[in-house]
Amino acid sequence: MTFDYDKRLATKASESVISSLLNKMSMESVFCTQSTLRSPWGISMPAIDHCMMFHLLASGTAHIQALNTQSEPLNIDMQAGDFILLPKGIGHVLSDGESNNHVPLNKLPIKFINEHFEQLEFGGNGRQAIMLCGAITFKHPLTLKLLETLPNAIYIQKDDSANQSIQSLVHLLSNEAINTDIGTSGMITRLADLLVITALRQYLEHQQGTHPNTLNWVGALADARITKAVQLVHKFPEKHWSLEELATQVGMSRTNFAVEFKRLVGNSPMDYLTAWRMSLAYTNFQTTKDSILTIATQYGYQSESAFSRAFKKVIGFSPGEVRKRT
């Protein structure tokens, strides 16, 4: 049997629904702070728009409490090895659990190392805690909509199954952040991508079938047929899909498919298709110089005007405005 190298090299890596969605999150920037903290200590972190924060407690203990989030309180005693992700960048305080003096972030003696990495030594002469804290910013409109569907905090304890991967990624991220070699910036971005995706996947996979409507598109994972429909849309966004064809592809009647898709995903199948196409097109406008018509035809539109109307409805900006903001 002859091995077909061309065929093997042309075979694309498969993605789950979660992976294909999270991999389109369009991270803008990332930086980390390695902190050595000694009791008594307390830090007040402001809310930051369009920002996802994280904290990994490497050693010692720490307490984290949210500020001004009555609808979703956060009050956690962290142990060594615990990881917390704050998808919405909410304001919060970190402390040794005893100090009531919380110093604002902008008043801390932070030492600048490079554009991606800072160091902090802070507190008194008591017991020590070491943390790696990070901030990741986003601008993609659909990414921001995704973040709005997530809780204020995703807490992953040391014994959780995903934590070993998270600790390894944070260790690599810390090493790269300190490094100033060629290619470091790209590595930091990729590692931060993996860190966020790992934490979110851990959370989202635990939510399958429990709160489908609160997580919008994640509800699709509760039904294999709807999952298949979403995968088809992701794999072939340029195809002129109709409601009937998608329903046939997954073995459902047109009516049942439409009702179940809307119930689980939160959008109609055609609205979801449009939103996915516009998300991909948004990235094209940021990363290529292709014309509007070229990008429009790439995602199944023959008319530049029709594409532009759909794009502005979903994204909130015209293609030209996105180009100017890039």
Rank of each mutant, 00 (worst) to 15 (best):
Thr283Gln: 13
Leu37Met: 13
Ile48Glu: 12
Met27Thr: 10
Glu28Phe: 04
Ile90Leu: 12
Lys313Ile: 01
Thr149Val: 05
Ser19Gln: 14
Ala220Ile: 05
Tyr282Trp: 15
Asn175Gln: 15
Leu132Arg: 09
Thr287Trp: 06
Thr326His: 05
Pro151Gly: 11
Arg127Phe: 07
Gln286Arg: 15
Arg263Cys: 02
His140Gly: 03
Met45Arg: 11
His63Ile: 04
Val314Leu: 03
Thr227Asp: 06
Thr248Glu: 15
Gly316His: 03
Asn75Arg: 03
Leu57Ala: 07
His140Met: 08
Lys239Phe: 13
Pro151Met: 07
Gly126His: 07
Thr214Ser: 14
Met1Leu: 03
Phe285Pro: 03
Lys235Thr: 14
Asp181Met: 05
Gly124His: 04
Met25Leu: 14
Asn106Pro: 00
Asn100Asp: 13
Lys111Met: 09
His206Ile: 01
Ser99Lys: 00
Val17Tyr: 07
Gly81His: 07
Val196Arg: 02
Ser268Lys: 11
Ala177Ile: 04
Asn106Leu: 06
Lys262Ala: 13
Ala310Asn: 15
Glu245Tyr: 04
Gly266Ile: 04
Ala177Met: 05
Ser44Gly: 02
Gln70Tyr: 01
Ser168Asn: 11
Arg263Asp: 10
Phe3Asp: 10
Pro73Asn: 03
Phe138Asp: 03
Pro73Leu: 02
Glu176Gly: 00
Phe307Val: 12
Thr287Tyr: 13
Arg190Ala: 12
Thr287Glu: 15
Trp41Thr: 09
Ala258Gly: 10
Asp290Lys: 15
Ala281Val: 06
Ala135Lys: 10
Gln79Arg: 14
Lys313Thr: 13
Gly60Arg: 05
Met278Arg: 05
Leu191Ser: 06
Lys88Ser: 07
Leu108Glu: 03
Phe236Glu: 14
Met27Ile: 15
Arg309Gln: 14
Val259Asn: 12
Leu169Phe: 08
Ala247Cys: 08
Gly219Trp: 06
Phe261Thr: 10
Asp160Gly: 03
Lys107Ile: 00
Trp276Val: 05
Met52Tyr: 00
Cys32Ile: 12
Glu98Ile: 13
Gln157Ala: 09
Leu37Tyr: 05
Gly316Phe: 02
Val103Gly: 01
Asn101Trp: 00
Glu118Pro: 00
Ser71Gln: 11
Asp4Leu: 10
Ser318Ile: 07
Asn152Phe: 06
Asn267Asp: 15
Ile136His: 02
His211Gln: 12
Thr33Asn: 10
Asn106Met: 11
His240Leu: 11
Gly186Arg: 09
Gly42Leu: 06
Glu176His: 03
Ala177Ser: 15
Gly219Ser: 11
Ile43Met: 12
Leu246Thr: 04
Tyr272Met: 02
Gly316Thr: 03
Ile197Val: 14
Val230Asn: 08
Asn256Trp: 09
Ala162Gly: 01
Ala258Pro: 00
Leu56Val: 03
Leu105Ser: 09
Ala58Tyr: 01
Gly209Leu: 10
Thr149Ser: 14
Pro46Gly: 12
Leu94Ser: 02
Val93Trp: 00
Leu22Gln: 01
Asp223Val: 04
Thr143Ser: 13
His211Met: 08
Ile18Leu: 15
Thr198Leu: 02
Leu221His: 01
Trp41Arg: 07
Ser35Thr: 08
Val259Asp: 12
Leu172Trp: 07
Asn213Glu: 11
Lys111Asn: 10
Ser44Met: 06
Pro40Leu: 05
Ile315Ser: 04
Val265Lys: 09
Leu9Phe: 11
